[in-house]
Simulated scan of single mutants.
Amino acid sequence: MATKEDIRSSRRLQRRTLAPEQILAAGEAIAQHGVAWAETISPGPAATYAVYVGVAFEPPTLPLIEALHKAGHRVLLPVCEPGRQLSWVYWTPATLFVRSAYAPIDEPEGERLESSVIAAIAGIFMPATAVDRDGNRIGQGGGYYDRLLQGLDASGQRPPTIAVVYDDDLLPSGSIPAEAFDRPVREVLTPSGVVRLDDTAGTV
């Protein structure tokens, strides 16, 4: 079995072959399917979702963020903190971004909320480099989201969680080695739709 780093490197190389128009189309499709998923789990017409800003060759998520906002939902974006912890800032179209002190990304400015806020939201859109059909996920290697999910799982307050990848990043069962600290996902959001890993024939 390939190591996580081998898989991460391979997927990153594959993503770099995508043309700008393919990336743009992926972002638009992810927004459409992501809002549909959000509305299936929303406790009401105005719910809160945790999202992230896809950068470089990651699946674009800004169209999803904007679509959720347009639909009347609130969006929390992550900020990297010491000890591989995350805090969260509410996004609006006026939100400004600054370079992170801990990761090669831009992060939102604004009041930072502790991760305990995530326990009460409607759902989490998570970054991933790859996911296999067992639900094992490879992130960017920082471990921020595994720590977040570990805390939510321990408290029994984990909201519905979906990993965002390109279609080719969904790998066959057994492709990704699982470690004790890993937290699997049960749904994956791709440009082609939502894949439920407990029923991989179903997409929306």
Score class of each variant (00 low, 15 high):
2 A>Y: 14
2 A>W: 14
2 A>C: 13
4 K>L: 11
8 R>E: 13
8 R>G: 12
9 S>L: 15
10 S>G: 15
11 R>L: 14
13 L>A: 13
15 R>N: 03
17 T>E: 11
22 Q>P: 08
22 Q>H: 14
26 A>R: 03
28 E>W: 01
29 A>H: 05
30 I>P: 03
32 Q>D: 04
33 H>S: 07
34 G>L: 00
34 G>P: 02
36 A>V: 01
38 A>T: 02
39 E>K: 01
48 T>D: 09
53 V>K: 09
55 V>E: 15
55 V>I: 13
56 A>Y: 15
57 F>G: 06
59 P>L: 08
62 L>W: 07
63 P>I: 07
65 I>C: 00
65 I>Q: 01
68 L>W: 00
68 L>C: 02
69 H>R: 10
73 H>W: 02
73 H>F: 02
74 R>Y: 05
74 R>Q: 14
75 V>S: 06
76 L>M: 10
76 L>N: 11
76 L>C: 10
80 C>E: 09
80 C>Y: 09
84 R>I: 07
85 Q>R: 15
86 L>I: 04
90 Y>V: 00
90 Y>A: 00
92 T>D: 01
92 T>Q: 03
93 P>K: 03
94 A>K: 11
96 L>R: 13
101 A>L: 08
104 P>N: 11
104 P>F: 05
110 G>R: 07
110 G>Q: 04
112 R>F: 02
112 R>C: 06
114 E>G: 10
115 S>H: 09
124 I>A: 04
126 M>S: 12
130 A>Q: 08
132 D>A: 04
132 D>W: 04
134 D>A: 13
134 D>Y: 04
139 G>Q: 05
140 Q>K: 12
143 G>A: 03
150 Q>G: 15
150 Q>K: 14
151 G>E: 15
151 G>Y: 10
152 L>D: 11
153 D>C: 12
153 D>H: 09
156 G>S: 09
157 Q>C: 11
163 A>N: 11
166 Y>V: 13
166 Y>S: 09
166 Y>K: 10
168 D>T: 02
170 L>R: 04
171 L>K: 03
173 S>E: 07
173 S>G: 07
175 S>D: 02
176 I>F: 08
177 P>D: 06
178 A>P: 03
178 A>K: 13
178 A>Q: 15
179 E>K: 12
181 F>W: 12
185 V>K: 15
188 V>P: 09
191 P>E: 10
192 S>F: 08
193 G>V: 01
197 L>D: 03
201 A>L: 02
202 G>Y: 13
204 V>W: 06
